[in-house]
Every structure is written in C-alpha cells, then in structure tokens.
Design a protein around this nucleic acid. Structure first.
Lengths: 175, 175
DNA sequence: CCGGCGCTCGCGGTTTTCGGACGTGGTCAC
DNA sequence: GTGACCACGTCCGAAAACCGCGAGCGCCGG
C-alpha cells in the first residue's frame, strides 16, 4: 500500500459544531464535514478512493484551508470562494458539484432549476442524490439548494445547520 | 400569443369617478370598472381569459359604448339597457349576471329573491359572491341588489357609489 | 306586548390549501 | 442487467376557509 493517497486532516471549531477538513499534499480540499457525521465522510472517501486506498494524517491548517474556513465563519464569506477542490465521483455528480460552486453567496436555487442548468431537466431528484453525496460540505455549497416551494427539504449535516448557513450568508451579504 | 384576445380600452368621466370601458372587436362589453379599482378588473380579466390571454389596446369610444355610458350618467338611463355584453365565468355566475339584467332600471331586488329567481333558493350568499365577481359594472347592474332588510351591504366600487347609482336611477325615473 | 337590535348558525358556490399518488433520472446492490 | 432506493416536481381530488346572505332567538326598552 505504498501508493495509497496521503490525506491531511485538521479540525476547526464553528458556531454550529466542529468541522473535519481533509486536504491532499497539493493543498486541495478533498473533504469537509461535521465531526458528528464523520462516519459518513469516511464512507464517501472509501467510495471515491477505495477502502485502504488512502491514509489520514493529522496536520495543522494544511494549505491554509482551515484558516480560510474559519474566516468564512467569522464573516469573510469570500474566503472560501476560490478554494481548490478535488473529488472523485461520476460525471453527473461532478457536473452538479461544479454547478453548485456557481451559485453566488447569499443566493439560492431549486433542485429542478439546477437540473435544467446542467442540461438534464427532469433530473431534479438525481440532483438531490448527488447533493447528498457531496464530500466537500460548505465550500461546495450544497446547502444553497431548496425545494421548488422554497422548503429546505434536507441536508446531510441536519436541517438546522442548513438554515444557519443560509442565514449566515444572507445576513452578512446584507442584501 | 398571436391568438390572444384583443380588447379595446377607453376611459370616461362620470360624476362619481372615472370609468374604464373594455370592449372586444365585435363591440361587445367585456368589462367596466372604476379606475381606482382597475387592478381588480385586470385580475378578473386574467381569471376569465388567462394571464396573457388578452391584450389591451387604447381606443376611443369602441362600438359607441363609451357614448352610451356617458349618456346614462347624463340622465338617459335607457342608453345602457340593451348593450351587448360578453363574459366568461361559471354557469352559476352567468346565470346570476343574466338575471341582473332583468332588473328594471329604478328597481331593486334582494339577494335571496334573486337566488330564488334563478332556481337556487338558499344560494343567496353565493349570489353575493357572484355579484362581487361581476366584471361588467353599471351595465350589468349588480348595484341593484340589496340585503333582505334593504341595507346596501356591499359594492365592489364602494358603498357610496352604489348609493349614488340607485339614487340616480330612482331620481331620473321619477317614480 | 311589541318592535328593534345583535348574535348565532346554516347556507351554497368559489378559491385556496393540503396531502397523496405518480413520473422522474442517476446510483448502488445483487 | 435489473430492481430498489431518494435532500424532487407536478397533478389531482378532497377538505377547509371564505364571503356583498337570511332566518331564528334572546334581550332590552318603550
């Protein structure tokens, strides 16, 4: 297993819980999730890189990513905008996640509209599925997707956090 | 939208406010309302013909209807008697509106009596509802309907106008 | 006693709201 | 392959709310 993917792990405190930050040696984000849902994150890593295909090593503020995330929670919403992200996943999923990064901070979109935007009208439900499979929470803003009627419908880390994030972004943007 | 219903719009002054007159290309009245309640009229048009199902074009005295209405306000009450009217609405509503035109000028009727007259005794309250949904004010004389105790109860354009219209019709008839 | 007033309740058509039944498209497990 | 999941969206039918009413009652002051 000498060729296993080496990943650096850090943890930071946020107002709504502790975050796990996973980066590669090139300083690209590979995963972000809440520590109380860490098992889900580990499962996603296994799916993307294979069980045993990666090793986790503690590291303080790898690539400055932890600092950027902390800044975001402190109110500097732009701090996470251009952060480098690298993921596995199917072509469809990567398309969804790429589209997610196009949603401006403080804005929202519906599952159906996002499906249309990636050229797959009618795949709204599949978008929800891909959303739930997003390994990089917060930075890839899956929380900015709402139901057609404006309902929050669901979020891997818990609806309450989704609500908090939207409120945080909407409030700080002061629109 | 090439098949949208084309409607001609005119405005005339009356002693109690300005009126909007809407006619079709065949010279039939489609709507009449007070300008200060124009939004209500537009909503009714949307309900009857669908949003975007009609286009409004300014036109002076379409089909001579404006002239007829002005004559009515000047004292020639008969001027609006036989005016052609065309509306949408449910079967019940059209029944109510047809019955309204049977009320002689200068006369009145109660909601309950009107209900009985169209074969729906007990539907007095529904008659009130249909009355409020009448798109062709004045010409379809919804103002001639009173409560069982003679009270004026209500009128889309304001009770004051209802009182004025009844007074106008009663006075000029000189009964 | 009698008339008037105000309240309550039943009324019927329309509109709005709500919930459940589909159709949907991509994933994952056999 | 095939079938079963779902962080959806649309449609349809039932139920409830909404009112430009009217009749029935109890209450009160002549």
């Amino acid at each position: 297993m000498g060729d296993a993917l080496r990943l650096l792990v850090d943890r930071i405190a946020a107002p709504i819980g502790e975050l796990v930050v996973v980066a590669d040696l090139q300083g690209r984000l590979r995963a972000v999730d809440w520590t109380d849902h860490e098992s889900r994150m580990l499962r996603l890593l296994d799916i993307h890189y294979g069980p045993g295909g990666h090793v986790l090593e503690p590291e303080s503020d790898p690539g400055g990513l932890s600092t950027a995330l902390a800044a975001y929670f402190a109110g500097a919403l732009d701090a996470i905008r251009g952060l480098p992200v690298e993921t596995g996943g199917s072509a469809f999923q990567r398309g969804v996640w790429a589209a997610l990064r196009g949603i401006p901070c403080g804005g929202t979109i519906t599952y159906g509209e996002l499906a249309r935007r990636i050229g797959r009208p009618g795949a709204a439900r599949a978008v929800g599925l891909a959303n739930g499979a997003n390994p990089v929470g917060v930075v890839v803003p899956c929380h900015r997707v709402l139901g057609a009627d404006g309902s929050l419908t669901g979020y891997g880390g818990g609806i309450e956090r989704k609500r908090w994030l939207l409120e945080h972004e909407r409030g700080s943007v002061r629109q």
